[in-house]
Write a protein that binds this DNA or RNA. Structure first.
Length: 191
DNA sequence: CGTTAGATCTCCT
DNA sequence: GGAGATCTAACGT
């Protein structure tokens, strides 16, 4: 696996969210292709960082290229990559993977074996890869994590984010066009 | 197909 | 006290 280019994560959340589509993510060799992301900017009312640092979100104000892992609705974990470190508070949420390696480990952790449902959603993705709060603030370009940049050509579509109640119209959800591994179909803007 | 309730963490008012 | 970047099972159509 080739290393991540220097400065890969040194970008604003929206451009990194787009660039991560088609890249690959592995944890202890288990993972696959990133097919769905969402951008959360520092000045974004929907972002956990909007009201400043707290014990939970402190990783969002730490080094670029580290992860922010938080507990969602009391029982799920969600994985973000911190970016745009100048002022802090900006990150990309990883929402879905196309499983490529370690399918058996994922199935065991998830309690099901349908590849389409193993990593189709932020909580499912972390469960399948064995990610929890112990990973919070770790660098994503070092073990147990590994990221491989996208290669070749592919089409990226974007639309509104999911599950939020603020800034609902910002089209900062990015998906690999035609992927069968999304958490939900993309709601496209009318022509 | 669709909608709903319940799991119970972290932060804000 | 209540909302939230979620998911699952259960139930109605």
């Amino acid at each position: 696996m080739q290393p991540i280019p220097a400065g890969f994560f040194q970008a604003d959340a929206v451009s990194l969210a787009r660039r991560l589509i088609g890249a690959e993510l592995y944890v202890e060799g288990v993972g696959g292709r990133i097919v769905e992301t969402e951008a959360y900017r520092a000045d974004d009312p929907a972002s956990h960082s909007f009201r400043g640092p707290s014990p939970r979100n402190r990783a969002m104000f730490g080094p670029v290229g580290h992860v922010y892992v938080y507990r969602s609705y009391g029982l799920h974990w969600c994985l973000n990559i911190v970016c745009d470190g100048a002022s802090g508070g900006s990150a990309v949420l990883l929402r879905a993977l196309e499983p490529l390696a370690g399918l058996e480990a994922m199935a065991a952790r998830r309690g099901l074996d349908d590849p389409r449902r193993l990593c189709a959603g932020p909580g499912r993705l972390t469960q399948a890869l064995g990610i929890d709060g112990t990973h919070d603030a770790m660098p994503i370009d070092a073990p147990p994590f590994a990221v491989v940049p996208a290669s070749g050509t592919h089409r990226v579509e974007h639309g509104p984010r999911i599950g939020i109640t603020k800034a609902v119209d910002e089209p900062w959800r990015f998906c690999l066009a035609g992927s069968a591994f999304l958490s939900r179909p993309l709601r496209r803007a009318p022509d």
